[in-house]
């Protein structure tokens, strides 16, 4: 899919995703080694966006499995369309049992869920397994099988093997420690907060109306906030929101009033707002 690490960075940038060297390198390797990519990091740094960007670059279909507590095989893999099977049985009254049995367990009655969808078919796909840490441990076992061999066994139909391996991205917020076995099968990528220069480029790209000097100030203030000991550090998503807010307020430079009034966009806890207000001397007016 990609020829070099720089190629990854350049092509992701075309879709509007500015990748750090770490991200570009790991995506390149995931593609080269054909291994799933496990992405961890704080909320709002672009973990899910990365999968979308890769899909766009590769011209692939994005298949998304959103994990939550209680997601199970029938939500993740496949399910038989029970109602339709019943209809089929009642429609064919005069059939022998053998005919009915083979018939109702055929493709027509299969409801493929994301994992099976990603494996079947010849078109390129990107499989995004979002918030893997929210799923129960049993689902991890299921993922192990699918991700190591890229095949799924449906007892009535036989084994479905991927003719073309999807590019797999798993994301996790680390609310639960994923099992060692799953981690072993994946390349690990931690997306942290970007460095100053990269974040400035991201802000300029996402909020084109913002002038260079203000973008620089915005990123510096966010950097200072991240160095504080806050409950929830502002993420890239918050930086962009803040930049948009400033644009909407028509601010052309930062001052005490503007920052104090819009601090709520960056910080989501009252404790944090108070602490930041004190540390940034916003009360000094």
């Amino acid at each position: 899919m990609f020829t070099s690490v720089d190629d990854v960075a350049a092509r992701l940038a075309e879709t509007g995703y500015l990748a750090s060297p770490a991200v570009a390198t790991t995506v390149f390797l995931a593609d080269r080694l054909g291994k799933p990519l496990l992405v961890e990091g704080p909320a709002g740094v672009g973990k899910t966006e990365l999968a979308k960007a890769v899909a766009e670059v590769a011209g692939a279909r994005l298949v998304r499995l959103q994990c939550y507590e209680g997601v199970d095989e029938s939500r993740a893999l496949y399910e038989w369309n029970h109602a339709k099977q019943l209809l089929r049985i009642s429609a064919g009254r005069d059939e022998t049992w053998d005919e009915t049995r083979t018939d109702i367990f055929s493709e027509e009655f299969l409801l493929p869920r994301p994992l099976l969808t990603a494996i079947r078919g010849d078109d390129p796909k990107v499989l995004l397994i979002d918030e893997t840490d929210k799923a129960d441990v049993e689902v991890e076992g299921l993922l192990l099988e699918v991700l190591s061999d890229f095949q799924v066994t449906v007892p009535e139909l036989g084994t479905v093997t991927a003719t073309r391996r999807p590019f797999v991205v798993l994301t996790s917020n680390a609310s639960r420690e994923l099992s060692e076995a799953l981690r072993r099968r994946c390349l690990f990528l931690h997306i942290g907060f970007p460095d100053e220069e990269l974040e400035r480029r991201i802000v300029r790209l996402k909020v084109p109306g913002l002038d260079e000097a203000l973008a620089r100030s915005v990123v510096r203030v966010v950097g200072a906030l991240r160095a504080m000991d806050l409950r929830k550090l502002p993420s890239v998503a918050e930086t962009i929101d803040w930049a948009r807010t400033l644009l909407a307020l028509g601010a052309d430079s930062l001052d005490e009033t503007v920052v104090r009034d819009s601090l709520g966009v960056l910080l989501k806890h009252q404790d944090d707002v108070l602490k930041a207000t004190a540390k940034l001397d916003l009360d000094a007016l």
């Binding site: 690490v5 060297p21 390198t25 390797l29 080694l33 981690r183 390349l187």
Partner: peptide, 23 residues
Amino acid sequence: AALGLTDRETLREGLAATLLHGT
């Protein structure tokens, strides 16, 4: 083998991605 030995930082990220399992 895929990344080569020319760029040290790329190599660092590549090895981190393959060898590590956690932040």
